[in-house]
Design a binder for these strands. Structure first.
Length: 223
DNA sequence: GACCAGGCACATC
DNA sequence: GATGTGCATGGT
């Protein structure tokens, strides 16, 4: 990876260190692109284990399909995704996303992929319930567009090590990575997944800094 | 029993 | 613009 500027080189070294320690993460854990899309909504502020239960419910009823979910009542959908929490809002958000998918591409993800990243991002953000992180997750992991995903772990890691300040916006944090890294889907995919792994293992609200691979690159956390 | 998890929209100031 | 709150389940 050829990176320009000191900050870019730090992010490059962090990536190499995380990959070395954790290995490839093989994200996103979903069998189809549509499943990834659904998972992106269900995982909003929610533990992935609970999302899996909800997705299993949909699979058991043969409903993990754009047209099938399009036909399903919102109330029934809410009951099925209940284990993922916030089930009423999530059913509403899934419905809105699927409405867009059906209306704009007849439920066909490969048709969506022909559109530009910029256009898709604008369209996704116009869907009620799809914010910047969910949009970028769908772009990167379901539609294979080079969009970096910023999540709570990413911000926490960067904040603790002084690479962003407390007031940094989503867009600023995203730009930090996108301006430094090659715009390759596989790299951005792996990097975000590695940051989540780092977050789960070490960069919790109560830090677990012992054996943290980020320290070798970023130094001691500020707090 | 408190705290946390791969957010977002909306109300209020 | 910033800050607060509702949405809810299941694991530690």
């Amino acid at each position: 990876m050829k990176l320009h500027g000191p900050q870019a080189r730090v992010l490059g070294r962090l990536y190499q260190a995380l990959l070395q320690v954790f290995g490839p993460q093989h994200w996103w854990p979903g069998e189809t692109a549509f499943e990834v899309m659904v998972g992106a909504v269900l995982t909003q502020n929610t533990n992935w284990k609970n999302v899996e239960r909800a997705i299993d419910n949909l699979k058991e009823h043969d409903l993990l399909d754009p047209h099938a979910l399009h036909r399903l009542d919102e109330e029934k959908l809410a009951r099925l995704v209940q284990p993922s929490g916030f089930y009423n809002v999530k059913a509403r958000r899934l419905k809105a996303l699927i409405d867009w998918l059906i209306e704009t591409a007849d439920g066909d993800l490969t048709r969506l992929r022909r559109r530009s990243l910029k256009r898709l991002r604008r369209e996704l953000l116009a869907v009620p319930g799809i914010g910047p992180e969910t949009a970028d997750s769908i772009l990167l992991y379901a539609l294979e567009k080079p969009a970096f995903v910023v999540d709570a772990y990413t911000r926490r890691v960067l904040l603790r090590h002084g690479l962003i300040d407390a007031g940094a916006t989503y867009a600023e944090t995203k730009a930090l990575f996108e301006s430094s890294l090659p715009r390759e889907v596989s790299l951005l995919n792996e990097y975000h997944a590695l940051l989540v792994e780092l977050g789960k293992r070490h960069c919790q609200p109560r830090p677990r800094c012992r054996d943290c691979p980020a320290r070798a690159v970023l130094g001691e956390p500020l707090r």
